[in-house]
Design a protein around this nucleic acid. Structure first.
Length: 476
RNA sequence: GGCGACAUACCCAAGUGGUAAGGGAGAGGUCUGCAAAACCUUCAUUCAGCGGUUCGAAUCCGCUUGUCGCCUCCA
């Protein structure tokens, strides 16, 4: 397979750069995963969908991807000021379960969404609680090199010892201090310093706590990603990604602690997915898990949307842009995917190989869009235009669709016209009704035929009369 | 208050110097007993507004207006 030059927007350089992996042919990719204290909302899922497109594009370009997505099952705090409530314990209290049960439950739910969205499984799903030892070791390394200090409630990273701190996110630290006052853990030397290891309160037995050289406690939030990424993928990653909200604090801190520990760059490419906003008609604003109500994948399914409708919805906008979620927007994505499926179904049964120059041209166009910083909206436009090309053989259209679907992940190869019911799967009552209608139509008793059509409508079916007889389609 | 992003048709949206992709909705047509579906056609002389640079601007620069985000946590 020839490697396509893939251009990706790198947050670190604030520009598109041609992607190069450190080891030829292999990409080490780490994606920040969920904290499993509640369901994922569709805004969270948008980021994982973007990462899946990235993974698929890399594989399409011929790379082998070593892919890690962490599960944060340690309850960190609700505030980055290292104060506040523990999220997992909050979840446990809310549902009257143990923190371990909460973590297990929402991990399972997360994986279910993952599968339903047709996301490729990562090579590893490292869990924070399985890597306490590695986290402690990393903190010890930092301690040995003099980057840490101890205060009453934990071991902290001294950000003033890392001159490039904040460079990544373009933070203007002085200005932030001048801004709104931020509550700060007592004893911190700099407002940006963060906890590497937190001590359990003296009089409280925490639900999750571990022994460490510094006393009983639990790891800080940021350290787990560095420790797990290094263990599973090595000290320098090719790609590290996450949501745009990780740029300022989480990734900034990961870079500081990792690069101070190893003396090497932590990742060469940093990619961030844009936010999903609620459209104005839905109330507006950024979707956030800390709000009490949020839309999750199951909410969509309950409203008769297919998870892949949402996947398709996400590809109608570039991954770095804001995307407004509204029900009418999702509906038009659903219509778009449905019509794509209908066009696709007859083609995938007559797939040939891709031979003609014309077919190669279409593939080049598609590939160029994908390789230009994952321009899925443009790629989708190309797919639609390709389908309309009357000079292109049907068999090649089918072949191209299957080829493109390696990146799109819409299961076009499996797709059938949606929910058509054939006569033999119908129950007896319905099939005799349908037969009666056919006879009524034959004898031009259209009043009776229309009456039966209404009956079917009540039962949730639309009748479509074609040249080969009536076909039923389930109403969703 | 400080910082930043964005503004393209009815809606979503691509397009980063060479004359406005695509999808959805709408409209008209073919087909049909009528529908539905399918297919065909159509749908921005113009890119929030105003100035500037340029042979040429949706694209670059400046200002104005508007929307949103960040400066607790969050994908």
């Amino acid at each position: 397979m020839n490697f396509k030059p893939l251009s990706l927007y790198n947050t670190a350089s604030k520009s598109k750069q041609e992607f190069q992996s450190l080891t030829p042919g292999i990409v080490k990719m780490y994606c920040c995963g969920p904290t499993v204290y509640n369901y994922a909302h569709i805004g969270n899922l948008r980021t994982y969908i973007f990462e899946d497109f990235l993974r698929r594009a890399l594989e399409y370009a011929g790379y082998t991807v070593q892919h890690a997505v962490n599960i944060t099952d340690v309850g960190h705090l609700t505030s980055d000021a290292d104060t506040g409530e523990d999220k997992l314990e909050k979840g446990a209290k809310r549902e009257g379960k143990s923190v371990w049960d909460i973590a297990a439950l929402y991990t399972e739910e997360f994986m279910r969404d993952w599968e339903r969205l047709n996301l490729l499984d990562p090579t590893v799903w490292p869990k924070a609680t399985d890597h306490i030892k590695e986290q402690i070791t990393l903190v010890q390394t930092l301690e040995g090199k003099g980057f840490t200090y101890k205060i009453d409630d934990g071991i902290y990273f001294d950000t003033s010892k890392f001159p490039r701190y904040g460079e990544f996110a373009g933070l203007d630290i002085e200005n932030q201090e001048a801004g709104i006052r931020v509550a700060m853990a007592e004893g911190k030397k700099n407002p940006t310093d963060f906890a590497l290891w937190k001590f359990s309160p003296k009089d409280v037995k925490r639900a999750m706590e571990w022994d460490s050289p510094w006393g009983v406690g639990f790891p800080g939030w940021h350290i787990e990603c560095s420790a797990m990424a290094m263990k599973h993928l090595g000290e320098t990653l090719d790609i590290h990604c996450g949501g745009a909200d990780h740029v300022r604090v989480h990734h900034t801190n990961e870079i500081a602690q990792s690069e101070c520990a190893t003396g090497k760059p932590f990742a060469t490419f940093w990619l961030h997915g844009g936010w999903l906003l609620e459209s104005k008609e839905e109330g507006g604003g950024k979707m956030s898990k800390s709000k009490d109500e949020f839309v999750r994948l199951q909410t969509l399914i309950n409203k008769h949307y297919d998870p892949l409708d949402y996947r398709y919805f996400c590809m109608t906008s570039h991954y770095r842009n804001y995307l407004s979620f509204g029900w009418s927007n999702l509906k038009s994505a659903k219509e778009g995917l449905t019509s794509l499926r209908k066009k696709t179904a007859p083609l995938i049964n007559q797939v040939t190989s891709i031979e003609s120059d014309l077919a190669h041209e279409w593939r080049d166009q598609f590939t160029s869009a994908i390789c230009d910083d994952l321009n899925l909206p443009q790629a989708l436009g190309i797919v639609n235009k390709m389908l309309k090309d009357i000079n292109l053989m049907e068999g090649e259209k089918g072949a191209l669709l299957l080829d493109f679907d390696q990146v799109l992940g819409l299961d076009l190869g499996k797709s059938d016209a949606p929910a058509k019911e054939s006569f033999d799967t119908l129950d007896r009552e319905l099939s005799s009704l349908l037969q009666e209608r056919n006879e009524a139509r034959k004898s031009k008793n259209f009043a009776r035929a229309d009456e039966i059509r209404d009956l079917f409508k009540e039962k949730g079916y639309v009748i479509k009369d074609g040249p080969e007889g009536a076909v039923l389609e389930k109403i969703q």
